[in-house]
Amino acid sequence: MDMNTENVDGITVALPAGRLDFGAAGPFQQQLEQAVAAKPRGLIVDCSSLDYVSSAGLRVFLVAARAAKAAGIGFAVSSMKPAVKEVFDLTGFGNVITLCADRAAAVTALA
């Protein structure tokens, strides 16, 4: 899985692409942990290029959300395709993680 990160006004935006499966979960977690360690104002995971997520991938969102909360960093997930959104919805992750329709809404949510 490829992942780029961007910095926009002190907010780190992570852009995972392709498949977030068991094999991709470890590297993805490392990248998000590094992003949290750099103490940005906020962390957004922009899922606009993410095609697939399994429970192994979901776990990383959970770990990152906890790490960000512990570090006092705002955390939001945005721009999910319908199939990825369904996985979040079926597991109730939207109750504990801020999910936004697009990146602009996520930036607003973290303001």
Partner: peptide
């Protein structure tokens, strides 16, 4: 428990649930 708080969430059983 898909209604649990962030701190209490576990991933065990989530795959089969899905």
């Amino acid at each position: 428990d898909i209604g649990a708080a962030l701190e209490d969430r576990t991933i065990g059983g989530l795959g089969v649930h899905l």
